[in-house]
Amino acid sequence: MNDVVDLRLLSEVFITLFVIMDPPGTVPIFLGLTSTMTRQQRNRAARQAILVAFGVIVSFAVFGQQLLAYMHISLPALQASGGLLLLLVAMELLTGKMEEPEPSGNGNVNVALVPLGTPLLAGPGAIVATMVFVQATDGSTADWVAIGLGVLAVHLCLYLAMRFANVIHRVLGDSGVILVTRIAGLLLAAIAVQLVADAVRAFVLQG
């Protein structure tokens, strides 16, 4: 099985992106952004947001390495900056100070594209994390399959969370969503510290 897909890498990609993109945490934001929409419009918005987020993540996964090479940015530098960025996101999750956009009543504004698809779903944290995973692989087919399946699985979770947002919010309640968000922030902080530690170790070894 490991010849086809690296299960360890798959689990790392899925868990990291799941924590960063936080499907349960998107429920109240999605409901707020689509509060003036009908059920059919809300379902369409969920599909569009996922397609936009998936396209952005995949684009950076495929072309991110060429961009880094062109700008002469090393993997440890990317890991350190990514870790610091994720730590900031984690602090926002833990303190509950993440900015929530206001619902739009303007029918000419497609909130599924901006701000829902990007930057709320495919934000800097998810982009940097995906690029770090791609940079750290040896380019084997098993690694690419693992990253692809991990990204796809997280986006499937995001779609299901938004597709059944009303049900999830009713089951978890406001307190449940807040609890899940705080746990996600704690896990994300640990991931961020590990990224910075790995980057420092790499810099020391290079020196």
Rank of each mutant, 00 (worst) to 15 (best):
residue 173 G to F: 09
residue 59 S to H: 04
residue 146 A to P: 06
residue 59 S to M: 15
residue 137 T to W: 12
residue 202 A to M: 07
residue 65 Q to W: 00
residue 30 F to P: 00
residue 69 A to P: 00
residue 161 A to P: 08
residue 136 A to E: 13
residue 146 A to M: 10
residue 44 R to Q: 14
residue 175 S to Y: 04
residue 89 V to L: 15
residue 71 M to I: 11
residue 118 T to M: 14
residue 87 L to F: 15
residue 130 T to W: 04
residue 92 E to H: 09
residue 194 Q to M: 13
residue 94 L to S: 08
residue 110 N to W: 00
residue 112 A to Y: 04
residue 169 H to D: 15
residue 38 T to H: 02
residue 67 L to Q: 05
residue 41 Q to S: 00
residue 143 D to A: 13
residue 138 D to R: 08
residue 68 L to V: 09
residue 131 M to A: 04
residue 69 A to E: 11
residue 130 T to F: 01
residue 9 L to E: 01
residue 92 E to D: 14
residue 146 A to L: 11
residue 94 L to K: 14
residue 85 L to W: 09
residue 149 L to G: 09
residue 120 L to T: 09
residue 109 V to Q: 13
residue 133 F to Q: 00
residue 32 G to P: 08
residue 107 G to F: 12
residue 87 L to P: 05
residue 69 A to V: 03
residue 13 V to G: 06
residue 131 M to E: 00
residue 194 Q to N: 14
residue 168 I to C: 07
residue 165 A to Y: 04
residue 135 Q to R: 02
residue 191 I to M: 15
residue 155 H to P: 06
residue 162 M to N: 06
residue 184 A to P: 00
residue 169 H to V: 02
residue 200 V to C: 06
residue 136 A to F: 01
residue 141 T to H: 08
residue 148 G to A: 13
residue 40 Q to W: 04
residue 33 L to V: 06
residue 130 T to K: 03
residue 92 E to Q: 15
residue 178 I to V: 11
residue 96 G to C: 11
residue 99 E to I: 12
residue 36 T to D: 05
residue 147 I to F: 08
residue 65 Q to M: 06
residue 85 L to T: 14
residue 138 D to T: 12
residue 100 E to L: 03
residue 124 P to W: 03
residue 155 H to E: 12
residue 142 A to W: 07
residue 158 L to N: 14
residue 74 S to Q: 07
residue 136 A to P: 01
residue 16 T to K: 09
residue 135 Q to D: 07
residue 15 I to H: 04
residue 70 Y to A: 13
residue 106 N to G: 06
